[in-house]
Amino acid sequence: MSAVFIFLAGLLLASSLAAVMFRRLVYTALSLAVAFASLAALYLHLGAEFAGFAQVMVYVGAVAILIVFALLLTRNAGSDPEHPGHGGSWITGAAIAVLVFGCLAFNIVTSSACARPMPNPPSITTRQIGESLMTRYVLPLEVLGLLLTAAALGAATLALEDKRKS
């Protein structure tokens, strides 16, 4: 294991655990941003430059900010003392999560795919990514454009609801 991997993995796990454990919701959003950023750094470490920067742009720049906005807009909802953030069935949930991790880890460790040697770093240029997006993956790209347009319209409609009624 390389030192960079250990550092990034530790940061990723610590910040994602913090994101789900913190009681203060803004801390949650901020540590989530750290988790996304460290994941992007892991992508860079794996040689996926384009995916890493896309991750930072979309997750840190858009999703984390959206979550922050949503937290601020629904600020009064979380301060209900009778209903703490954790549900009564949290032991069941945690047990299921641990169980799932156990299953996954067992299968990963015993899998033959992990014995794969690491190939030489691939030399993928941005131009190659763009060309394959425009040739082999052009249909998914078009569908994605449609999906994003629909999502933008849908989100705007949902958010504008009050204005339309009044």
Binding site: S16, V20, S89, V98, L104
Partner: peptide
């Protein structure tokens, strides 16, 4: 698993 635990609890 962390994500799953958060979504469940």
């Amino acid at each position: 698993s962390i994500g799953l635990g958060a979504a469940l609890t």
